[in-house]
């Protein structure tokens, strides 16, 4: 209990530290999946650990203390009281972050569904007659495949082959349910802020994954890279405020990745990430057992 209960915090920092490396070296589809899986388990384990720490306060509750004094039993104190109070505060903070993130995800989905109104339900592509060059996937609800929204400005800027790259890219997001994967890591990062770098990596990897799929569909990596460059330049011209040196270089990195061979599926590295996630679950399970053993006599 004294050590185990802190494993999720340590391991989430470790996961955050290795995630960029995994993202660079492992095939994006595999890397995104294992990182998201590990992040979910770790986030749940972190929340549970805090709950355990907070639960140790039970042994300091007045009735429990009086009982123990009368019986002449020593009071168990697995963690200092200050730590337990800090855990309570952190739990509240996490809950607040979680609900804020969940609400923002919900609002995004709702705003997106509004954009589909007025279009026949069985078409994939929704065009917005807008001078702002934009393209994004609108995830469908259970059973429906989702839609692709592209503005007329973006379509007009691309060649036929480049448009095909764009459509294949967005289609890959829908087909592989990238929306869910992103929601999962966004919520995980909200619960455990140590996991924010993992969230950033997964969100980037999902784009890389869709790029690789588009390159496979079109059968031409160079053309895929050109489509990205043209779309980025078109979008960049419209938004000068974004062009002041403050970008995450995501598009440049995606284009660079398309100019080399696709990264291999390194199962060893992927398994390590999953093992990290599993370890947090094991540590927390162990701590739970310890706490139950400690508290059982005084609550009996």
């Amino acid at each position: 209990m004294r050590v185990d209960v802190y494993t999720p915090f340590l391991l989430s920092m470790l996961l955050a530290a290795v995630s960029p490396r995994v993202g660079r070296r492992v095939a994006p589809a595999l890397a995104a999946r294992v990182l998201a899986g590990a992040a979910l388990v770790t986030a749940a384990a972190t929340a549970w650990s805090l709950l355990l720490l907070a639960a140790t306060l039970v042994s300091a509750a007045p009735p429990v203390v009086t009982d123990a004094r009368e019986d002449g039993r020593p009071l168990p104190e697995p963690v200092p009281e200050a730590v337990a109070f800090a855990a309570c505060a952190l739990l509240l903070f996490m809950a607040h972050r979680f609900f804020r993130a969940a609400r923002s995800e919900y609002l995004t989905r709702r705003a997106l569904r509004l954009l589909c109104e007025g279009h026949p339900p069985d078409t994939e592509l929704i065009v917005a007659a807008s001078p702002i060059p934009k393209a994004f996937a609108i995830p469908g609800r259970a059973g429906s495949p989702g839609r692709i929204l592209v503005t007329s400005a973006m379509l007009g800027a691309l060649s036929a082959e480049e448009r095909r790259v764009l459509l294949s890219h967005e289609r890959a997001h829908l087909h592989h349910r990238h929306g869910r994967l992103c929601t999962a890591v966004i919520l995980a990062g909200a619960v455990n802020p140590f996991l924010v770098p993992v969230r950033r990596t997964v969100v980037f990897l999902v784009e890389r994954w869709a790029d690789e799929r588009a390159a496979a569909v079109v059968g031409d990596r160079a053309c895929t890279a050109r489509a990205l460059a043209r779309a980025a330049l078109t979008a960049g011209c419209q938004e000068p405020s974004h062009g002041l040196g403050f970008t995450d270089r995501a598009v440049t990195r995606r284009i660079a990745a398309l100019q080399t061979a696709p990264p291999p599926r390194l199962w060893g590295l992927a398994a390590t990430v999953l093992a990290l996630g599993a370890l947090t679950a094991l540590g927390t399970a162990d701590a739970t057992g310890d706490l139950v053993r400690l508290l059982a006599p005084i609550l009996a």
């Binding site: 393209a135 996937a137 779309a231 974004h242 598009v251």
Partner: peptide
């Protein structure tokens, strides 16, 4: 910034050097 800006876009902004 809430609904659509938070969304995954096909491409994001560029700095002059990238451009």
């Amino acid at each position: 910034p809430d609904p659509i800006a938070a969304l995954q876009q096909f491409v994001t902004g560029l700095n002059p050097e990238e451009e």
